[in-house]
Design a protein around this nucleic acid. Sequence first.
DNA 1: GTAATATGTTAGACAAATCTAACTTTTTTT
DNA 2: AAAAAAAGTTAGATTTGTCTAACATATTAC
Lengths: 231, 231
Amino acid sequence: MLPLHAYNVYICQMNSLIEENYLKALFNLSNKSGEVNVNELSRQLQIKMPTVTSMMKKLGAKKLVHYESYKPVRLTEKGKKEAAVIIRKHRLTEMFLVQKMGIGWEDVHEIAEQVEHIQSPEFFQKMDELLGYPKLDPHGSPIPDKNGKMTWKQYRKMSDCKVGDTIKLVAVINTSAEFLKFLNSRDLRLGLKLKIKFVEPFDNTITVSYGKRQSEMLSQTVGERLLVEKV
Amino acid sequence: MLPLHAYNVYICQMNSLIEENYLKALFNLSNKSGEVNVNELSRQLQIKMPTVTSMMKKLGAKKLVHYESYKPVRLTEKGKKEAAVIIRKHRLTEMFLVQKMGIGWEDVHEIAEQVEHIQSPEFFQKMDELLGYPKLDPHGSPIPDKNGKMTWKQYRKMSDCKVGDTIKLVAVINTSAEFLKFLNSRDLRLGLKLKIKFVEPFDNTITVSYGKRQSEMLSQTVGERLLVEKV
DNA sequence: GTAATATGTTAGACAAATCTAACTTTTTTT
DNA sequence: AAAAAAAGTTAGATTTGTCTAACATATTAC
């Protein structure tokens, strides 16, 4: 067998891979003031706290986070930018997988989780082009621009709506395959218009109507994970 | 900022990543009898020999290679299959990048080198489907099927052709960006028909005609990297 | 057939990312 | 305000993949 492709330099981007996962988690966990507790981060990444502490020191030394003992961590501007680039790659990928490859929105997260670490500006540039420069990913989350800027509409949770409201489904919180499959099973997708028919006072179960479904019941758990805007 | 995508399990396929690079290199370097020297492997991967030796022991323990001290290494059937799957993913990706994303054949190798490690049968299944189950990658190398089987035509090097031969360019050996850019600059692409006009006996420079070019000179180095079939 | 060279292995060190156990600081409860 | 709980850190061990230096075996050259 001829050794085609003998020119095969081994590129290892493992340094980034791990660092990138920390940065992304920090970005996603940041509250309004940008703070993240080591404990939360540890839970999110499923990495024990001492390991996280030591990594925070390392990221601190690289000026990617502000770190002081016993205080919550904050991404620096540099760190925020790097994190946003990764999230941009993740969300562009999700959009590409759904729109251009026909993969279901319940399956794209896991794939994007891997693709987001690919180092190739050209690759993501092409995705962006082919998609027509989308602003939102398939779950309604905003795609940061190349500088890491991201405009965020403050949507309302369906569980905060009142009887009689007519609303449009614009985003989902929690992109677990199970939850998205549940939404599929009820024909619930982004852009759908619904009307709140009834809210059970006891457990906040919401009864809604939409499309051909005149009376569908959604638990509070579901209602809290659906973001909507008034029509 | 709302923590959308809070469900974000960190998947680390680093074990595979490194192992996969060894397997791929072993596959690509295998000669007719399937043997690879530790030294070659070391050169290919740019990893020092002792490291390679110890990895061969590890792969041996996992029944991915046959390893005996001071002897060349051979992939086991299991190892060959795993390697072929990675090469399949690599080549499918290259084809996808060229055909569906409009990326130049000189740029796809580096991206595919990263994408090939993605763990998602669905992702590669979709690529295959969208491409119409291609048998060859953009450089003319065969894409192994899902079981790792790969049919290989034994092509001839352009440098072995004689004056008067009419040939078709079917594959390139060496997929370095520099070489492919050189081919681009001469309008040399797969499928192109050429005629051998003259071979300089002194240095084996080949003069060919094709398309609008009546007399293009190609060095032996180039001729050895172009695989052709007689028309 | 021995010497020289190339190839391959062993031993031991090192860096990175992880862990557990023990300790410290901060926050919450009462 | 003291005790209890939660959060965070330190110290030290472990694993993995890498390295260098030194040694062993094969191959090639003469």
